[in-house]
Simulated assay, not measured.
Amino acid sequence: MRFGLSFLPDCTPETKSPQTYFSDALELSVQAEVGGLDSVKMTEHYLHHYGGYCPSPLGFLSAVAARTSSVRLMTGCVLPVFHHPIQLAAETAQVDAISGGRLDVGFARAYLPDEFDALGVDMDESNDRFRETIRAVLRIWTEEKVSEQTPFFSYRDVTGLPRPTQQPHPPVWGAAVRTPENFAWLGTEGLGLLITPLISPHEFRDHLTVYRDAFEAAHGASGLPPRVTASLPLVVAETDEAAEEIAETYLRRYLDVWAEAVNAWDRRESSAYRGYSGFGWMLRGLQAEKLYTEGGAIVGSPATVIDRIRAFNRHIGGVDQILWQIDFGAMPLPKARQTLELFCDQVLPEVTTL
């Protein structure tokens, strides 16, 4: 199993300024490479304290590329419904070149109503936009004189520049949360799968089976393997009690900021997002302790964390990579650095063979 870092800024100006947030995230990214981690991931969002500091994961990853030499760089995710495929294909290929071929491109459908409303995109069209844009980006990366005519974009005889450094293109991933059809589509298309198990890994096990079965049916003869990456909050301290004290404070902040961003779902319904109505109520009622007792976060001493990683992987049915959120809740750099150091020094050597 491989491990890395997953960033999603959840800061308010009172808890951490944008300058401080990115200074901290860049320092942690460099430390992650030194400590033997494989990947650094950043997420795109707008307007809210949940993710709003980073409208451009590619901009952040370019800065990480300039400070590192081997760690993989992952968008986790860019939101294709808000971008033209020519733009996405060109900007991702540029970062692939800057990094010497270290970019993984993760796409997500977007789900915050305020983003769709402000940017003038119909939520009910998001699934079709998501799939059409990914398909178009893949064509621009790999073909010349590409023409498209869709309800969302059209162009003729486009040859994208720059061409990707990795051939035929960077590894591509897609995020899925609740809908079985989305897990199946990602498998059928041969994309890697990105998940964020919010409460318990058990709830995702059946979804991973759907993904893997669809992947095998479409690509089994090719020898290509399905790939699953999970993102989870992590706190490691010298004792379980110390780790839980940190987790209680900063997981609560993380959940509160997230709940504020999804408040619109308390009064919104969409046929494209079944099960999302009331999402804010669910987050506001969720206890931080429930996350790390049921596996949606990993918290404890090094020995406890080793056991909980093994249990998580067993309960979910196996993943290929876990990317840790170690700075959630606008956590101060020294606390996040402690988690990273203890994980790399005392946990990583024991779990890479999972």
Rank of each mutant, 00 (worst) to 15 (best):
H219K: 08
S147G: 09
E144Q: 14
W258T: 04
T20R: 15
E44T: 05
D124R: 13
V347W: 03
Y155W: 14
W281F: 08
I298G: 09
F7C: 00
A242P: 01
F130R: 11
W324D: 11
M123Y: 01
G160T: 10
M331V: 01
V146C: 02
Q94S: 04
P226C: 03
H315K: 12
L342P: 04
E244Q: 14
L47I: 05
A217M: 07
G59N: 14
L342M: 11
W324P: 12
G35S: 06
S17Y: 07
G120D: 11
A136Y: 02
K145E: 15
I246N: 02
L138A: 09
F116C: 11
A218T: 07
A65Q: 12
T339R: 06
Y53L: 15
D157A: 12
E289K: 15
P349M: 04
S277F: 01
P13H: 05
Q287P: 01
V146I: 06
S301C: 10
A175G: 14
P164R: 06
T142V: 03
S69Q: 15
P180C: 06
Q166W: 04
A243I: 03
L198D: 04
R308F: 00
R102H: 12
D240Q: 09
L26Q: 05
A214R: 04
V81C: 15
E260M: 03
N127C: 00
G223F: 03
P57I: 05
K145C: 08
E181D: 12
L198V: 12
A32P: 07
I86G: 12
P170W: 03
V105I: 14
A97W: 13
I298D: 02
G174P: 01
H169N: 11
I98V: 15
R129K: 13
T165C: 11
D122K: 06
Q94W: 00
A214Y: 06
S29D: 03
G106F: 02
P233H: 03
G295F: 11
K335T: 10
A89D: 00
A90P: 06
V30A: 11
E216Y: 01
A230V: 05
R337C: 04
Y211K: 03
T142P: 08
I322D: 05
Y292P: 10
T43P: 00
